[in-house]
Design a protein around this nucleic acid. Structure first.
Lengths: 235, 235
DNA sequence: ATTGATTTGTTCGTATGTATC
DNA sequence: GGATACATACGAACAAATCAA
């Protein structure tokens, strides 16, 4: 339930219903007819998404991300809706779609046995008509025996959720830089010497297993990754 | 209290006392003589640091970050102890240390008034003797009237905590790429055409105000930023 | 400047649900 | 099916920071 409440609050923030602050806990309790604990858990989720700051004695303040950059990818939120703001269109074109056998390095990265069968899906993605990224993703066929081409052209995660009830529980993220391989340079029509931001993600299925490994190369100009981190306070 | 318990658990993970899994909640309750709620809150913090995965009915599994890269910066943890693992030495050499007046763009980024007085501290940092990063940081003098050179050569955040009781509550992070300015190229002894990873951070003081703004350029080879994100599950 | 009300933070207890083993 | 282990939800009390009269 607190998940639902969190989503509703997030939607109200994105719609601009809540601007500077959230309502107080007491008011949210009345609004949703739940206990304080439940409201606070919902607010935790909103907070973890990097949308608010919490100030004891004062309230919950909504973060207004400054436009330092044309495009800001919010990595605190789930896959598929990473762009900050909301009004944009992300399209996909499948470049490669086949089954492969995991070699030693790929198996190590995905923490599965060498020889495991994997779907390989390479997609070229555009953001509002402009070239956005090249994504190379691997899925364990033992977990998702069938993935359709339609799904690959839209949202694979949505497909997996609907068909197999697979939901991502947590995701490890690695950000770095890389140059393009000759193949990638051709597909992306970019120079092979230039450096690009890359995001490597390891998605965990509920049963404590990696089911997806992906590396995404971003060619969108002046891109920024955003996320909020909260800190432990020793005393 | 759950902060302290979280730190102890984290230390036990880093020391290798807990390897594959954490003890069960029930056992941790006994061990620390606290209620289940408190243990769960502590575990929440460990989880948010990206150190464990949670699996209902089974337990808490410790993440073992693979060595994809020579250096992995864990951004889920606080400033000053960002490197994964623990056994390393980060040294600082102050390049610039003065007071300046915020111009329009800097003021906008820090969300303060134009004309606010700021400390500017530029530091060159080495990791285990190897050139690591160039950090340009700004601090509001209204919040920290005096910052010593000694502090700048060591940990400014520790200094602020001890002297003024300032603790970071939350931190916005922006990751991108940049080329070096001529000055920066000279200081770093790098080519001005090359691209480098940059991390821009906005640290919030408890009272809902930005007190620190910094941009760090990383020149360490093959660096990766790591963090864990958890996802909302709609149903 | 102090007090009092408001608002979030922490901790306890309890009960029930759900996934895993 | 039963036991174990984590997830969710309610209620209650007090602490601590903030804010306004």
């Amino acid at each position: 339930m607190y998940h639902d409440i969190a989503e509703q609050i997030i939607e109200l923030i994105n719609k601009g219903v809540f601007t500077r602050k959230l309502p107080t806990e007491a008011e949210l309790m009345r609004r949703y007819s739940v206990s304080r604990n439940t409201i606070r858990r919902a607010i935790d989720l909103v907070y973890q998404r990097g949308l608010i700051r919490r100030v004891q004695g004062s309230g919950y303040f909504i973060n207004d991300l400054p436009n330092q950059s044309k495009a800001i990818v919010n990595l605190s939120v789930g896959p598929g809706e990473t762009m900050h703001g909301g009004d944009y269109h992300l399209s996909s074109k499948v470049v490669t779609f086949d089954k492969i056998i995991a070699d030693a390095t790929l198996a190590a990265r995905m923490r599965v046995d060498t020889g495991s069968e994997l779907y390989r899906i390479v997609r070229l993605r555009d953001l509002d008509g402009e070239r956005y990224c090249l994504e190379e993703a691997y899925y364990l066929t033992t977990i998702a025996p069938v993935i359709t081409v339609e799904a690959a052209n839209h949202s694979i995660f949505d497909f997996l959720a609907e068909s197999y009830g697979i939901r991502v529980s947590s995701c490890e993220n690695y950000i770095g830089m890389t140059t393009l391989s000759p193949d990638q340079a051709v597909v992306l029509q970019e120079k092979s010497k230039q450096q690009f931001l890359t995001l490597t993600q390891l998605n965990y299925y509920g049963n404590n297993q990696v089911f997806n490994y992906s590396t995404t190369i971003f060619v969108y100009p002046d891109l920024r990754f955003y996320f909020l981190s909260s800190h432990l306070q020793s005393n």
